[in-house]
Design a protein around this nucleic acid. Sequence first.
DNA 1: TAGATTGTTAATCGATTAACAATC
DNA 2: TAGATTGTTAATCGATTAACAATC
Lengths: 212, 212
Amino acid sequence: MAKDSNISLPVIRRLPRYYRFLYDLKENGVTRISSRELSQRMRLTASQIRQDLNCFGGFGQQGYGYMVDQLYEEIGRILGMDRLTKTILLGVGNLGTAVGNHIDFKSRGFHLIGLFDDSPDLVGDTRADMTIRSTDELEAFCQKEKPEMAILCIPKEAAPRLVEKLVACGVKGFWNFSHYDILHDYPDAIVENVHMGDSLMTLSYHMTQKGE
Amino acid sequence: MAKDSNISLPVIRRLPRYYRFLYDLKENGVTRISSRELSQRMRLTASQIRQDLNCFGGFGQQGYGYMVDQLYEEIGRILGMDRLTKTILLGVGNLGTAVGNHIDFKSRGFHLIGLFDDSPDLVGDTRADMTIRSTDELEAFCQKEKPEMAILCIPKEAAPRLVEKLVACGVKGFWNFSHYDILHDYPDAIVENVHMGDSLMTLSYHMTQKGE
DNA sequence: TAGATTGTTAATCGATTAACAATC
DNA sequence: TAGATTGTTAATCGATTAACAATC
């Protein structure tokens, strides 16, 4: 449906934020909005909003603005919120548990269907209403269930071996909380890295600057 | 120490990654490295590395390269890793627990000194070797301990009230996992947002594109 | 129709890359 | 000294903002 399939990453990264704001507008009974009013609420320029949206098509009406509900649906479709990608989570430590319990996967286009961990202490335990499986079962499980996405909440050292298996099993996407550089070894993988430590250090930098 | 205090955000966001790579090099006994070799390992251009580093000063030696250990130290100093900022965590649900337990605060310039939650069920419990306090105690605690940073693992609705208190108590920085827009209400706050849901939706977008 | 606001082109701004003189 | 590699300036590229014609 994309007008142009070479959408730049900055544009893509703004879409979820548009989606959130539109959801809130919808909730508050706002049925239509101009790029100018939305720009004030989101603290960006009206020009940028119109540029961003026009990467995907003309969703507005001249002289009138955008229908909130329709725009919400369109952006949802663009982001793939209209389908559920089968997903497994690897590494059920503190972080993996939090990710599994805290994130609302369904409303973000994913269906979490399995949890895996190396540690015998954890295998058999329950998280997010699922039993934790041994990574020994990973390949058999993938062949049967065909998950397309894997969440990596494992240490850097454990990652290469598991990613190799996952790629072989047909997993295409990775939500990667580890510091293992997946793209370096698998350039065709679809990877979204979340480096929370880096984010924290960025905050440290800004606090250090302000202090001086 | 900054040569120029208007360093752009893209440069800042690359620093933690340099820091990680330099740490690994150090661990592997590499004592010096050229921008060219580092660029190959990090998959960016040598030019960019030299530009980035020269925002802060000439850390290299012409004809020779960079001393790994010295560069690691310098970047650590720039990022504020040479001091510990007192930090409190608000909201000890799944996410807050994971953040509290999983993140190595000390090695990233922060010292986690207190946990707070609204829920009477959680107050008194222990996480990361600390007792969870009631948010009723927040102001008294802050007056005594003077934390400078707060981690928000609370719902959007709970945030405005708590942030108001925290700002009044002198908290300057926020590692914000909530969807509350702190800067909108407190333009002088130092804020690093972590929107995991947005990250997941970005992955969904890319997986959707690849599928077509 | 007149007013409003989009869609889109043009101008500006900033970040990245290339080139090269300085120098170890 | 010759070779290597930085620090820095210049060129390019891309993203954001401004302007305005199209049109509802």
